[in-house]
Amino acid sequence: MTALVEMKDLKKTYKMGETYVKALDGINLTIKKDEFVSIVGPSGSGKSTLMNMIGCLDALDEGTYFLEGTDVSELSSSKLALIRSKKIGFIFQGFNLLSKLTALENVEMPLIYQNYSHKNRKKKAIEALEKVGLGDRLHHKPTELSGGQQQRVAIARALVADPPIILADEPTGNLDSKSGKEIMDMLVDLHKQGNTIILITHDTYIANTARRKIVLKDGKITEDVEVS
């Protein structure tokens, strides 16, 4: 079976003012289906850049990246957009919901860009919201929901198109510890239901919730261990 994520000697350099910063310096990484991986490291370690790479938000400079067997570095921006909508479910630290739309409309959005029909869109979005326990909050706007609920809407949005990878960037960073724990429990549940989850965090405790921990430092993988 082909790996979901397969990176070979991947490099990325950013220009910051006059100096060049090696954000990623030769990453070799393989992630298989059904894994629950955390990528952990201090700020500046390159973990955000790695997330942008995995999520096809940014182009690599050197090396190769195959996503489900497709060479991503060769694709145009509109193909990348399609890959993002079909293969990656993003969960952000700041939730990133559209404040003018209701929970349901927010969750429907990825399906809009995949040209689902109105009826199917609505059906799938309601299912996803029910899955995260917000079946009774369909028509609430983000401002009418608590932080934990907003993040659950974001999770529903990440799930709605059934992407092979869920990519969560500090999903508990903006939440109190109780809501944070709820969200982590939900991710663990989702993993048990057969979703592949990649979790980016600076928090070692959170990172240990995953089954596999990858430690990043100065753009290089320094540790790649199973978590017991």
């Binding site: 938000l57 509109s78 957009a81 993002r84 993003f90 990133n96 959005m109 990825p110 860009y113």
Partner: peptide
């Protein structure tokens, strides 16, 4: 800008 960023991240093409 942020709205556009979110839309792009979750799959909006340039043309959309």
């Amino acid at each position: 800008t942020r709205e556009i960023g979110i839309r792009k991240a979750i799959g909006a093409k340039r043309s959309s």
